[in-house]
């Protein structure tokens, strides 16, 4: 399932980069289906980087790197009996 979510994430990312807004409804629908299946997908793009965030594998561009400027893989959590569990760390570039 992670592979499928990653592919979906890539398609969504490309469509945003290439400003193709007409897929928004379809993306929302797919997000909804993933949520129903117990997956929570987090795209931390543009967020400030928190060194305590263990859901991320960060590539820090310099010692004072603060902002997440590129997301190579999203964070994926899955709902289990006792709550959410991280199943894929996000891979990001921080500048």
């Amino acid at each position: 399932m992670e592979a499928l979510i990653n592919q979906f994430f890539e398609i969504e990312k490309k469509s945003l980069e290439h400003q193709l807004p007409h897929f928004e409804r379809n993306f929302n629908r797919i997000h909804h289906e993933f949520t129903e299946m117990g997956y929570k997908i987090v795209n931390p793009l543009g967020q400030p980087y928190d060194e305590r965030d263990t859901a991320l594998e960060a590539n820090l561009m310099h010692p004072g790197a603060k902002k997440i400027t590129k997301v190579l893989k999203p964070i994926i959590y899955r709902e289990e009996a006792n709550g959410y569990v991280l199943i894929q760390k996000g891979v990001v570039i921080v500048e």
Partner: peptide, 27 residues
């Protein structure tokens, strides 16, 4: 508990304050 946050080990004082990030719509 979901594995997405860890402060690391820090020196403790008598009063500790940490702003912790929360996972949306979840406990």
């Amino acid at each position: 508990a979901d594995g997405g946050f860890d402060t690391g080990v820090l020196r403790a004082s008598s009063k500790i304050t940490e702003f912790v990030p929360l996972l949306e719509k979840a406990t």
